[in-house]
Nucleic acid binder design. Structure first.
Lengths: 227, 227
DNA sequence: TTAACAATTTAGCCGAAGTTAAACTAATCC
DNA sequence: GGATTAGTTTAACTTCGGCTAAATTGTTAA
């Protein structure tokens, strides 16, 4: 059985959610509903269709879990999506903070031929502009090593690994602060009780709220080079 | 009222058909059905929806005719489609004969922002890779001047203006013969009774059947420069 | 241990876009 | 001028993907 575009989107989103909660392999329908901007019943019905097609297992009232086939579909979609983003940024010159919506639209329709060409023209990138790893053509997905900025030790250097938000304003703000994936910076201090963080980027000092900092994931230079 | 993607496709196709029959402004539902690869009733119902939305007039059993609003929608779609084709050829390096399907898919989803960028990166082209004129952003569509190769005078020089087929094999064949839009050639002779044509391209002599020749539209160098 | 609440699923609805089969027009042909 | 035929339209059904409202389940708290 082959997945429709819509089915692939659900599978991809489920995979992304699972990737961000490495402890627990089950994805709740409500988290899917939220990410897909869709009602809960819509998810339940799609889940049933996907189960019948063999793309996932469903433990009612508990959650879902992709099968091998489901992961394959998901990774194909994610790869297309992230390579399109890279292409829009590297080749077409858009800002990394402004390409998500267009990439969403394009990601569902580009052919393999096109994706391969985009891959090539972007220099076979390893990560998308938000820092997420790009699955290989044969469906291997590296696991990146990084930590929420809001939880790492102070007075040390880090590299931005991933920026985990789709909020256009936040992305634009990070972009203005030069806080983008791959960027090196120094974490000066963090105020207690979920207080603001102070960091130094390109010699400039910035302050970030605790919550905002939580959407940035960071790691060491060496860890960044691993993927 | 704003048109869905699907509505725009129908409007665009209707416009293209009308453009190829300059004498008669009415487009039959069967021609639309054929071009859209869809059953006749599907067209009839869509036509009614489009009529209600004010995009066309419908004379039952006679045909349809786009309104101003309908032409606007159609031209926006055609512009997107043809600029995507140009981009795939000029920027991404695909062959002009192989981009139609991808362009079809992409044309329905690319945003204005993207189309404008593609326009710029392609050098603000005037025609798509098949030679069809590209509507301007404000919705003006030039009318090209050209004639079926099967009907023009022999022993003269011409330029390929448009290649009017979507058949992948024919396109590939034309491509192999170097017969692409903008190409200059000499029409040597034409055998009577719908016989083959002889022409000289780049010093090489080729023969084309009458029907195949009909899918090529040609004009003088000066006429080609007009659009 | 039961009551309340939150999450999930079921039931029944809608609209878009497709299909086939049957009915209807318009036009042509003898 | 009426019968045949080609082209259109209507009717009735399908699938997909969304929705709201109602029922159900699992968990938590009194």
């Amino acid at each position: 059985m082959t997945a429709t575009d819509s089915m692939q989107e659900y599978l991809a989103e489920a995979f992304r959610i699972a990737y961000y909660q490495p402890d627990n392999p089950y994805v709740s329908t409500s988290s899917l509903a939220e990410e897909m901007q869709v009602s809960a019943p819509a998810v339940t019905r799609m889940v049933q269709r996907l189960k019948h097609a063999g793309f996932l297992q469903h433990a009612p009232y508990r959650g879902i879990r992709l099968t091998e086939a489901g992961e394959r579909e998901a990774l194909a979609n994610i790869r297309r999506h992230r390579l399109v983003e890279r292409f829009l940024v590297d080749v077409m010159g858009f800002g990394w903070h402004e390409v998500h919506d267009d990439a969403d639209d394009l990601g569902s329709v580009v052919s393999d031929k096109l994706v391969d060409k985009m891959d090539e023209m972007s220099g076979f990138p390893k990560r998308c502009p938000h820092g997420e790893p790009i699955p290989s053509a044969d469906g291997a997905m590296p696991r990146v090593i990084d930590y929420p900025l809001s939880e790492v030790a102070v007075e040390r250097d880090y590299v931005i690994s991933r920026v985990h938000t789709h909020d256009a304003h936040k992305l634009r703000y990070f972009s203005e602060l030069n806080l983008e994936p791959g960027k090196r910076f120094h974490l000066v201090m963090r105020a207690p009780f979920k207080g603001p963080l102070q960091l130094k980027v390109d010699g400039q000092t910035h302050f970030l709220g605790h919550e905002l900092a939580g959407t940035l994931r960071v790691c060491s230079e060496e860890e960044y080079q691993l993927v």
